[in-house]
Structures are given as structure tokens and as C-alpha cells.
Design a protein around this nucleic acid. Structure first.
Length: 424
RNA sequence: GUGGGUAUAGCUCAGCUGGUUAGAGCGCCAGGUUGUGGCCCUGGAGGUCGCCGGUUCGAAUCCGGUUACUCACCCCA
């Protein structure tokens, strides 16, 4: 059983699905090129410490969701659960900050988290993400939102919403945090158990609790806006001003918080109404402290990540991004023996011209071969009959209208031309 | 990690309150057309009824466990 079943929370992507992936990857490359983001491919695993330091020891991901193992050299390695820390690591390792700033990078690849799978959540999933390092310009925050929005639009996606918030910086957040604790402490018995639990560990997280009793308590909770330092306040105001000027629709959500420790200032999330409970198709934010945390000099940065499977799910829900079905240009029909040999030669030639050509490998009847040609959506059937071959000719049948014509076996260029003209 | 639902052919699913050889549609293969597809007709292949155990004369059906899938919680893309 386990030999023929894939590991839990993983997916195979084969014919019928892979076309969508190719199409999406193509669009990603196009959008990134327009915004000047270049691809970065990092390893699928990293030193475990990178994620412990980067994401934060007290986060769920580090505490219970990482695929961590020891290699034969007794190094502790971890399958990457996210893409930002590795990108920053590569940025530092190759000293990319020494060139012109900002450095704009994007990545596309599998991430791994040990969680219970559900709709739109897998143990191996794919993220497309981007990181802009070396500038604190609020315009970069905005572009980190614009780029994925551009991608969604180019795929034809509708029904998504941008939520945005700021969570301050190491200067102003501790004060707000303190204020929150002071507010919740006297009301602690009205909170759900998990909120009681995280009250001291990570009080910001209480803000997005969905439990009804917590919601009531939350209604009167202090908002961060009034506790922001001058810099954070100014930064956020500029981000919103740019969004307005660029005509981006968004919803201010003072309750929006993110799960990683490295976020500062702007955080945002894009949700799709097409999805179930896991409805975020992208999220990101600014992380001005991470580069320094990982050993570099202070370097502001901002990033965004798209959940590719979720995006595809949302698109499928709307019947979007459907590549037109393709079929071979020709199906070569033979009768075995010498006719098969001849068909193989012609197929070899036509394929050399870049044409998709199929033929039968099961020694099936002509009828079965015609059926196969039809099923594959072949535009032509080329019949290699004894009689025609003896006259140095082939029978070319148009599968759409059933019209047939003879082709000179010596003039394969002519055949290739006819087949090629029918678009491919 | 917690809770609910589900598990029968390659796919989608029937199978009533336990009863003898487990079915349908689609798909696949072959034939009807000894060299011509789509429509139609005929036939065929394909199933440890997820797995283990229990109750029973008898279990796909009832019970327990287990695994997987699925949805939700936690959390997140």
C-alpha cells in the first residue's frame, strides 16, 4: 500500500494539471520581468539554525512544523518551510548588497511544513515569492503588493481582497504589546484557552482570533495606530498614499498580524473568496530587521509570497487559466512490417522539423489507429498503405473534414509544410 | 496535536433493515467495417468491497481498532 501511495500532504502533478502550472510559471516570469525581479534558486534544505533565527523560536513553524533531519555529517538540516530566510541568506552569502540597490529577487519552488492537510494546505506546497532588499522606500512595499496583483489579474482571477496593516517596529511595538497585555489581563477569563495561552507569549496574535467570545473582548482592545512611532506612522501613511494614487483597492485591517517574528511595519494579505478556510492566496510584509538578525549590516527589505496551489485552486473555481487542448499535427498509420519502418522514418523526419507526430506502437488495427488519432485530436492522419508506398506516395487525411490527398513520398518538405500550416 | 465526514472497477457512484455468482455509467480493449476516426450496436478485460480483528450459520452491509482521504480547529501560502 505505501509503495503505491504518495506521502501524506503531497501531490502529483501530471497531464491535465501540469499545463496550468506551465502557463502560470510563464505569467510569473513575465510579470517579474516587468518589475525587474530576477529569479533566485536556493537549496530545498538549509541549516536548521537559519529558520530558528529567521522565523523565530517561538513560532508554530519552528516549534512543531519543520521537517528537520541530521545528515551523515551530523549537521542539522531542515527542508525549507518558507522562502524569505533562504533568500536573505543567499543575499548575504553572495554579498549581493554590494551592488546597486535595491536587489529585487523572486523564487518559485516547494516549501515543506508538517501540518494536517486540508483544503489548500499541503505538507509540500509551492510558493512564488519576491524579496526587495536594500531600501526602506514605502513605494517598494506597494510594488510588493502590485506585482502579485498584476499576476492575479493576468490569470483572470477575480473576487480577491487586499488587507493591509502595520505592526510597528522594535521601537514602538513593545509599548503596544505592553498595552495589550494590560488590557487583556483583567479580562483573561473571557478569552478562549488558546488565547489565554498566548497572552504572554505573543499577545499580538490574540488580535486575529476568530472565537466569538474573544471577538467581544477584542472590540475594546487598543489599536496599534495610536502607538506607532513617528517613523512607522509616516511610513504607513505613505504606503497608503501610494496605494490610493495607484488606484489599488484595499481594506485596512488593524487586526491583521503575521505569524513570523521578522515582520516590521507594513504587513498585508490577499484573500480569495473562492477558497475554504485557508483563503490566503498571498501574504507578505516588510522585514527591516531580518538581514541584520542573520548577520548582515542593517538592511531594510520587503517581500511577498503567493501560495501557488491555492491560486490554482481559486482559478479553477472560476474556470480560469484553461490552456487550449493541443493535439498532434499528424498520426502516422501503418500496417506493420515495412510500412511501420517507413512510418518510423517519416516520423523521425517530421519530428526533426519540430512537429508533434504520433504513431502506433501496439500493432493495432487501422480502425484502432484512426480512433487513437481522433482521440488525441490529431489534425491529420497519414496512411502508409502498401499500395500507395509502391507508387511512392502517402495518403494524407484531414481529420476535420475527412478530405484525402496523396503526397509524394520524396517530398517530405511539402508534407511538413502542410502539417505545419495548420498552426501548432 | 484535536474534532466531524468518507473509503466498493482506471474515474463518478449504486448496493434497501446482514443472505448465496458484487452492479451501473463513463473510460479502456476487441469486433460489427479483411485499408479509414467521430454516432450507433455487440462482446471482453478489469474488484484483496482500504487494512486488521470481533459479532453471526452467513459481513461490502453491524461493532471496535487502524491507515488514508476529506473538511474544520490550531496555524498558515
Amino acid at each position: 500500500m505505501t509503495l503505491t501511495t504518495r506521502p501524506r500532504g503531497t501531490n502529483d502533478v501530471g497531464p491535465g494539471q501540469i499545463e496550468l502550472w506551465h502557463e502560470l510559471e510563464e505569467r510569473i516570469r513575465r510579470v517579474c520581468a516587468a518589475y525587474g525581479y530576477q529569479e533566485l534558486r536556493t537549496p530545498m534544505f538549509e541549516h536548521t539554525e537559519l529558520f530558528q533565527r529567521g522565523i523565530g523560536e517561538a513560532t508554530d513553524i519552528v516549534e512543531k512544523e519543520m521537517y528537520t533531519f541530521q545528515d551523515r555529517g551530523e549537521r542539522s538540516l531542515t527542508l525549507r518551510p518558507e522562502g524569505t530566510a533562504p533568500a536573505v541568506r543567499a543575499f548575504l552569502e553572495h554579498n549581493l548588497g554590494s551592488g546597486s540597490l535595491p536587489v529585487k529577487l523572486y523564487y518559485f519552488g516547494p516549501m515543506f511544513r508538517y501540518e494536517r492537510p486540508q483544503a489548500g494546505r499541503y505538507r509540500q506546497f509551492t510558493q512564488f515569492g519576491l524579496e526587495a532588499l536594500g531600501s526602506g522606500d514605502p513605494l517598494l512595499d506597494v510594488e510588493a503588493i502590485l506585482l502579485p496583483l498584476e499576476l492575479y489579474k493576468s490569470c483572470g482571477l477575480s473576487g480577491f481582497e487586499v488587507e493591509i496593516n502595520t505592526i510597528g517596529c522594535p521601537n514602538c511595538r513593545p509599548g503596544y504589546r505592553q498595552e495589550l497585555v494590560e488590557y487583556f489581563q483583567p479580562r483573561v477569563e473571557r478569552l478562549c484557552s488558546s488565547c489565554q495561552n498566548r497572552l504572554h507569549r505573543n499577545p499580538l496574535r490574540l488580535l486575529d482570533c476568530k472565537v466569538e467570545s474573544c471577538q467581544e473582548v477584542l472590540a475594546g482592545a487598543p489599536e496599534i495606530t495610536k502607538h506607532l512611532c513617528g517613523e512607522c506612522s509616516e511610513h504607513f501613511a505613505q504606503v497608503l498614499a501610494y496605494l490610493d494614487a495607484l488606484g489599488v483597492e484595499y481594506r485596512l485591517n488593524p487586526r491583521l498580524v503575521r505569524g513570523f517574528d521578522y515582520y516590521t511595519k507594513t504587513v498585508f494579505e490577499v484573500t480569495s473568496q473562492e477558497l475554504g478556510a485557508q483563503n490566503a492566496i498571498g501574504a507578505g510584509g516588510r522585514y527591516d530587521g531580518l538581514v541584520e538578525e542573520l548577520g548582515g549590516k542593517p538592511t531594510p527589505a520587503v517581500g511577498f509570497a503567493v501560495g501557488v496551489e491555492r491560486l490554482l485552486l481559486a482559478l479553477q473555481g472560476q474556470g480560469k487559466l484553461q490552456p487550449e487542448p493541443k493535439g498532434p499535427s499528424a498520426y502516422l498509420i501503418h500496417f506493420g512490417g515495412d510500412t511501420k519502418l517507413k512510418a518510423a522514418q517519416v516520423a523521425h523526419f517530421l519530428r526533426g522539423q519540430g512537429l508533434w507526430v504520433e504513431l502506433d506502437y501496439l500493432d493495432r488495427s487501422i480502425r484502432a489507429q484512426m480512433k487513437a488519432a481522433n482521440r488525441l485530436g490529431s489534425r491529420y492522419a497519414v496512411i502508409f498503405g502498401e499500395e500507395e508506398l509502391s507508387r511512392g506516395r502517402l495518403m494524407l487525411r484531414n481529420m476535420q473534414d475527412g478530405q484525402e490527398q496523396e503526397i509524394d513520398l520524396e517530398d517530405l518538405k511539402q508534407l511538413a509544410k502542410i502539417l505545419g500550416e495548420c498552426g501548432k
